[in-house]
Design a protein around this nucleic acid. Structure first.
Lengths: 217, 217
DNA sequence: TTATGGTATGTGGTATACCAGATACCAATT
DNA sequence: AATTGGTATCTGGTATACCACATACCATAA
């Protein structure tokens, strides 16, 4: 009877994890602000036990910091952290390309173009757009066939989105981003690691610059 | 009164995390075997609540997999995982070198040599040796001034130690490893990124080969 | 007025009781 | 003998009560 799709039950801890993380990325809670376990459990309608598991994961992944018997604090955003994530992202997105290109076939490239096309269709909505920009990068990471690398890229792009959320809400140069994606796809089509890597690095550099500008304010 | 060193209380979850992780790396629990929360809490002398937090962290970091209402299982070791970690380690240890070299001064290089010297003094004991091999890599990562990168390298070297534990217990070509470290240090002294990077990649390649051989058995 | 210290309150940490899903076993039925 | 289905038991998931530490506040005393 396995054809009856076995939808797994959403665990409370997973639900809490997603909700809190979303709230942080979208700056619904300020960086540096305190999270109260009892309040959060009430808001989410769950007890403290599964909530604690969600918070544990968020801490391991670098979103919050727990200070025993004092409180749980959303990490602050500073130049050092942005730079750290930036460096990691560059190195590991380059790795994605290096792993991906030898695996490429025409069918895969078509899929990549399709994903990017969906992106362009909604570029009028900055908030949705950013998720699809990340989706593009995540899709490439997924195709690299390295699960750990995928999870790492996920975490890094999520942090980039957090750092640059102000710029994204204000509206960003979406056409440029779309053009940069096109350059990446061209590199992939040519199966040229050097060309593609340059396109990716340039794309990340530009996102980084945008973030730094929005942080100055 | 801050001169009275404020030793922070070891939280139960941290203690449990370290103990369980050590047990996994040293193959005191077999890959694939099941961990029982109630048994573990008895063995560690703590309740299930802090234990769950430790398990949550171990799962996020890739050591175990929790299947709701079925059990918690130590991850199995397979070629794909080893390769994934191998690829990530290469890319990110190269990043360490790229970040580190512009930061080097003579004092720092002396420290690095000192750490490596301590390593050579105990090369007769394989089990201790491996921790100091990792310490060497971790020390370089720490000097790169990127906290996230440091934590990533920590996780990756720990997994390498887990994968290759059989080979390490059997006794490994310690002289070779020591020689390879010397090459890395020479590269650092020359402030030569290309030279150092090659030495690091060669070192990781050799460790990888050793792991693969021990996995065949 | 200022310093002190006790107390009330708020925090996360911990232990535990209970719940529901998953599983294994065994008896009843065919 | 093979199949069914119910039950006992094992699992992690959840809720909750209580604890110890940290802190803010306020009364008290110098």
């Amino acid at each position: 009877m396995t054809f009856l799709k076995a939808e797994q039950p959403q665990l409370f801890k997973d639900h809490a994890y997603k909700e809190i993380k979303k709230g942080i990325i979208q700056h619904k809670v300020e960086p540096g602000s305190m999270l109260n376990e009892r309040s959060l459990s009430e808001i989410l309608g769950i007890s403290r036990t599964p909530l604690k598991l969600a918070l544990q994961q968020l801490e391991v992944e670098g979103w919050i910091q727990s200070v025993p018997r004092k409180g749980i604090f959303v990490k602050t955003i500073n130049r050092q952290d942005v730079d750290d994530v930036f460096q990691l992202r560059k190195a590991n997105e380059v790795l994605v390309i290096e792993l991906l290109i030898p695996l490429l076939d025409n069918e895969t490239i078509e899929k990549i173009e399709k994903v990017d096309k969906q992106l362009s269709d909604i570029k009028k909505e900055p908030l949705k757009f950013v998720y699809h920009d990340s989706s593009f990068h995540l899709f490439l990471a997924e195709l690299s066939q390295n699960l750990r690398l995928y999870q790492l890229i996920q975490n890094l792009t999520d942090h980039f989105n957090w750092y640059g959320f102000a710029a994204l809400k204000a509206g960003i140069s979406l056409d440029e981003v779309y053009y940069e994606h096109k350059l990446i796809i061209e590199g992939l089509k040519a199966r040229n690691i050097h060309q593609t890597t340059n396109a990716v690095l340039n794309h990340i550099d530009n996102t980084y610059s945008t973030i730094l500008e929005s942080l100055k304010e």
